[in-house]
């Protein structure tokens, strides 16, 4: 076996993050095709439990376990990760298109001079030894790129299928010590805080009615509030809606907000950029309403309605009233 497909594993107290499991499952497939090992790389402190968990699924777990890595400091993590990658020389590094993956991927790509293709919606191997990646481009289209290895690629959560199992590995535990570069001299964490009202209303809801910029104005929120009330659901929004002050932060779904998996998610006037879909693509049923037939939201929705949202939603409300 030659080469290494490596996944930068993100984790919480509950274990590996969903995105990391998705990447490991996909990485296992690619490693099989390449005849390469599947590895996970993890940085932090008190990593014993998580490295054991990862060891059950991969061939090699590379970890840097240091009290200096207890808090996530991007500059320090980037420096350490670059050092680790320099040693492993992976054929392919997979990262989440998450806040951490975005900043660490960009930093190590620049430090090591390896191409990073970010925000990928597909990663496959070609028969002639290249990696074929897909990523969004403006105008509701995607581009397919042929890339030489070594390559770094990041994928948003929820794009690759959620794995039942990743397969078994030998689980070799490889501790890497970093003696220098751990001091966080230039960026110092002072305080971490939660936004007000950031309770779990959104993450526990069975039904979510989400609005995007396409609703046009804060004055247009009423029919969506009524729809949420009628279906026993709660309201959510995209980043632009928050930025314009139409709804407060506790309603934000996406990479910079909450990740939700309701039984029913109704996306109203939402184009479906990966920043938003990363937080909702795991919903059991998604209905999308958008007048732009090219909107990427139709790529994740189960049901699509290509209509002006302000016209069709009051009509749906009338029908709901008639049927119940």
């Amino acid at each position: 076996m030659t080469g290494q497909v490596l996944v930068l594993a993100e984790y919480s107290e509950q274990g590996p993050e969903g995105i990391s499991l998705e990447l490991l499952a996909h990485g296992r497939k690619l490693a099989g095709q390449l005849g390469a090992q599947l590895g996970a790389v993890i940085l932090g402190s008190d990593l014993q439990r998580i490295t054991c968990q990862l060891g059950e699924t991969v061939d090699d777990v590379y970890f840097v376990d240091s009290p200096a890595l207890r808090d996530y400091n991007p500059e320090v993590f980037a420096r350490v990760l670059a050092e680790v990658l320099r040693g492993i020389q992976p054929t392919l590094l997979l990262l989440g298109y998450t806040y951490k993956g975005m900043e660490l991927g960009a930093a190590v790509s620049a430090i090591l001079g390896t191409l990073l293709v970010s925000n990928c919606t597909g990663i496959e191997l070609s028969s002639n030894g290249y990696v074929i990646v897909e990523r969004p481009v403006p105008g509701g289209t995607r581009a397919r790129l042929e890339c030489a290895m070594p390559l770094f690629a990041s994928v948003p959560p929820g794009v690759l299928s959620s794995p039942d199992s990743i397969g078994r590995g030998h689980g070799r535990q490889i501790s890497i010590s970093c003696s220098s570069g751990l001091e966080a001299a230039r960026v110092r964490i002072k305080e971490v805080f939660q936004v007000k009202n950031a309770d779990a209303a959104l993450t526990k809801a069975d039904v979510i009615v989400a609005v995007g910029r396409g609703i046009g104005s804060a004055n247009n929120l009423l029919p969506f509030r009524e729809m949420a009330a009628k279906l026993g659901g709660v309201m959510a929004c995209t980043r632009p809606v928050l930025d314009m002050g139409w709804l407060p932060q506790e309603h934000l779904v996406g990479l910079s907000g909450f990740t939700v998996k309701p039984k029913l998610y109704i996306a109203c006037g939402i184009s479906g950029a990966s920043q938003h879909t990363a937080g909702m693509s795991g919903s059991a049923t998604i209905m999308a309403i958008n007048k732009d037939p090219q909107a990427p939201i139709f790529g994740v929705a189960h049901y699509g309605i290509i209509e002006d949202v302000m016209t069709v939603v009051p009509e749906i409300m009338r029908q709901l009233a008639r049927l119940t």
Binding site: E134, T141, A143, R144, L145, E146, Q294, P296, V300
Partner: peptide, 14 residues
């Protein structure tokens, strides 16, 4: 170390 092969519409993803 890459080349763009094509640009395509992705409505069919799901």
């Amino acid at each position: 170390t890459f080349k763009i092969i094509e640009v395509f519409s992705h409505r069919s993803a799901r």
